[in-house]
Design a protein around this nucleic acid. Structure first.
Lengths: 341, 341
DNA sequence: ATGAAAGCGCTAACAG
DNA sequence: CTGTTAGCGCTTTCAT
C-alpha cells in the first residue's frame, strides 16, 4: 500500500479512502491511485484490515456432517447469498462431535468472523452459549438451540413426520417402525413427536419395540433396519428420520432379498436428487434445503447489519413426495400404487 | 492479552510465550499465566497473530461444485487432515465459473492463507497461475493445471474410462455412447481418451454421433441421454463421465420407460453410497474420494512445511465395481448378470 | 480534499 | 527466564 501511495504521489490514507469508496475524493487522485494499484497489481491485505476494523467479510459455518447431501445443499444456498454479498465462508465440520464443535467455535471467535451459522450437535451446547453471549451474530440452522435466545431457521419436523406416517397409515399400514435420531438433537425429537402424533391420531398404539434410535448416519440405518426386520412380528412399514439412515435401511432390505413395498414399505425424510432413480423410487418428505440455506444466510446478514434486531424463528415447510416405496395394503395383499416416478 | 498479563503480573511477551509453548519459561509463571487466561476466559486474537506472523492455520479450498457428492467426500478427507493438524478451512465454491474462481483466489491471497487446494474450472486459469507464482503453496486436485509446475493429486481417468468401456465391450456391446464433460477440464478429456482407447483396442469405430458433451451436472446428463436414445440407431450402452450426469441419464432412461440393462446399459464414473440401491444397482468406476482428500491435504501440508519441495503428481487408482446395470448381450438378447448388489 | 499519526493485538529481536 | 520495544498493513480521527 505504501508503494501504491508513493507511485500515485499521495498518502496511504488516500489510497485507503479510494479502496473504501469514500466521498470527498477528487476524480483526479482517484484515477491516479487506481492506475497505481493496477500497475503494481496490488492486493489489499485483508488481515490487516480486519485487525483494524474488527469486522470481517467472513461468515463462519459449523455443520454437523459435510458428507450429508442435505447439508451440502443448504451450504450451497448459504454460499450463494454470501457470494452475492461479498462474504466468504469459513467452513467447519463438527461431524456430530461436541468437542470438535467447541474447538471450532473458539476458532471462529478468534478469527473475528462477522457471524456464524451453526447446526448444533447438542441443544445444550455450552460453547454455542458462549458464542451467543459474546454478541457475535448467530443463527441456528436445522436444529434448535433450546433455552437460548437466537435466530433460528428450521423445518416443521413434526408436520413432516406426521405426513409421512399418516401416508403410511392411509395406505393400510398399522405396524410402522421408526428409525429415529439422537435425542439431544431437536430435529430427531420433533420427528419422533410427529410419528407418535400420527399414530395416536389414527388410534394406533405406539409400540416401543418398533422405535429405534440411530445416529443419523448410514450404518445405523442398516443396523436398525436389520433388527426390525428380524423381529418375530416385523413392521410392515418403516419411517426413517433422515436421508442417510433411509439409504442404510434400503441397503439392508435389499440385502435380505426383500421387496419394497411388498414385504416392507419405507418413507424417508429429506428428498435427494437420486430418490426417483432408487429401487423403488422413494417416497420422501422433501425439505426446501437450498432455500433454507438462503434464508439462513439472509437472516444472518440482517443480524450483522443490526445486532439489536429481535431474534426470530423461521419455520419452513416440508412436503410429502409420493413415489413407489409404500404400496397399498389391503388385508394381506399389497398393491403397487404408481403415482409418479 | 494485556489484562491477562496484568492479572498474572507478567508482560504480554510472557503471555505470548506461554501461548506458543516456548521453552525457557518457569513452571511457576506458566501456571500463573494459564490460570489468568482461564479466569478471564481469554481468547487469542488470531487476526492479530496472523498479521504479525504472516502465517496462518487456515487452508483455502476452491472446489467446483459443493453439491457434488464426489467433492464433499474429498472435502471430508481434507477436513479430517486439517483438523488433525489444527488447520481450518476457508471453503469457496467456484461453481465451475472462472470468474468466481478468480475472485476467490484473490480473496484467499488477501487472507494470507497458508496454502490452497483447488479443482480448477479451466486448465489455463490465469488466476491460478498468479496464485502459484505468488509462491503460496498450492495443490491441484482432481483436475490438472496444465503448463504449470504444481503439486497435483488426480485419479487415473484414462484407465478408469478404459475399464468402464472395456467392460461394456466384453459384455457384447458395440454401440457405446459417451456422455463426456467440458473440454477445458482435463478430467473430461482424459475420460474421453480412455473411452476412445478402449474402442480402438477392441477394433471398434469411434462414432461421433455417439459422443456427447455435457457440463458435469445432472441436467446435461438427462438431455444428452434423451438425444442419444432418440437416435435412429440408438446406442446399446452409455458411459457417463461423471456421477451427476449418470444420475441425469438414469432419470431420462426411466422416464422413457426403458429398462436397464435390457434396452440400454449404463456405467457411471465415480461410485456413490446409494449406487447399490439404484434401479438397477449401478455399475461404476469407483474413485478413492476420501483418500484423495487426505492425500491432497497431506501434500499441501508438506509443501507448507517446505516450500522448496519439488512438485509431484500423485495418481490414484479407480476400480470398476460391477453391479447390474450392464447385462450380457448375446446377439439381440440381453441377459441379466448378477454379480453383486 | 488530503496528510500525519495513532493504534488494532500480537510476536520476536534484543537486552538484561 | 522475562521485560521492553518495534512493527506487521491497514483505517481513522484530527489537522490543515
Amino acid at each position: 500500500m505504501r508503494d501504491v501511495a508513493h507511485l500515485a504521489g499521495v498518502s496511504t490514507a488516500t489510497v485507503s479512502r479510494v479502496l473504501n469508496n469514500h466521498q470527498h475524493i477528487s476524480e483526479d487522485t482517484r484515477s491516479k491511485v487506481i492506475s497505481a494499484i493496477e500497475q503494481l497489481d496490488y492486493q489489499l491485505n485483508r488481515v490487516a484490515r480486519r485487525l483494524r476494523m474488527e469486522r470481517t467479510q467472513i461468515l463462519g459455518l459449523i455443520i454437523s456432517d459435510i458428507a450429508n447431501p442435505f447439508f451440502t445443499s443448504v451450504v450451497r444456498g448459504i454460499e450463494d447469498v454470501a457470494y452475492e454479498n461479498e462474504y466468504s465462508l469459513l467452513l467447519c465440520n463438527s461431524d456430530e462431535h461436541p468437542a470438535k464443535e467447541e474447538l471450532y467455535i473458539r476458532v471462529l471467535m478468534g478469527e473475528k468472523v462477522a457471524g456464524v451459522i451453526i447446526s448444533p450437535t447438542d441443544e445444550n451446547s455450552t460453547a454455542a452459549k458462549a458464542l451467543i453471549e459474546s454478541r457475535i451474530p448467530v443463527v441456528a440452522m436445522d436444529r434448535r438451540l433450546c433455552h437460548l435466545d437466537v435466530d433460528t431457521v428450521i423445518v416443521d419436523n413434526v408436520q413432516g413426520a406426521y405426513d409421512a406416517v399418516a401416508h403410511l397409515i392411509r395406505l393400510g399400514h398399522c405396524r410402522i417402525a421408526l428409525i429415529g435420531g439422537p435425542v439431544q438433537i431437536t430435529t430427531a425429537r420433533e420427528r419422533q413427536e410427529g410419528y407418535e402424533k400420527a399414530l395416536r391420531n389414527y388410534g394406533l398404539p405406539v409400540d416401543e419395540t418398533l422405535v429405534r434410535v440411530g445416529d443419523f448416519k448410514q450404518d445405523s440405518g442398516s443396523c436398525t433396519a436389520g433388527e426390525l426386520l428380524a423381529l418375530d412380528d416385523p413392521p410392515t412399514a418403516i419411517f426413517a428420520a433422515n436421508n442417510l439412515m433411509t439409504l442404510g435401511a434400503l441397503n439392508a432390505i435389499h440385502e435380505k432379498g426383500l421387496n419394497i413395498p411388498r414385504d416392507v414399505a419405507i418413507v424417508g425424510f429429506d428428498d435427494m436428487p437420486w430418490a426417483p432413480s432408487l429401487d423403488p423410487p422413494l417416497t420422501t418428505i422433501s425439505q426446501p434445503t437450498y432455500d433454507m440455506g438462503r434464508t439462513t444466510a439472509d437472516l444472518l446478514l440482517k443480524k450483522i447489519a443490526d445486532n439489536n434486531r429481535e431474534n426470530v424463528e423461521i419455520k419452513l415447510h416440508p412436503t410429502l413426495i409420493v413415489r413407489r416405496s409404500c404400496g397399498l395394503r389391503v388385508g394381506k395383499e399389497v398393491q403397487t400404487v404408481v403415482v409418479q416416478r
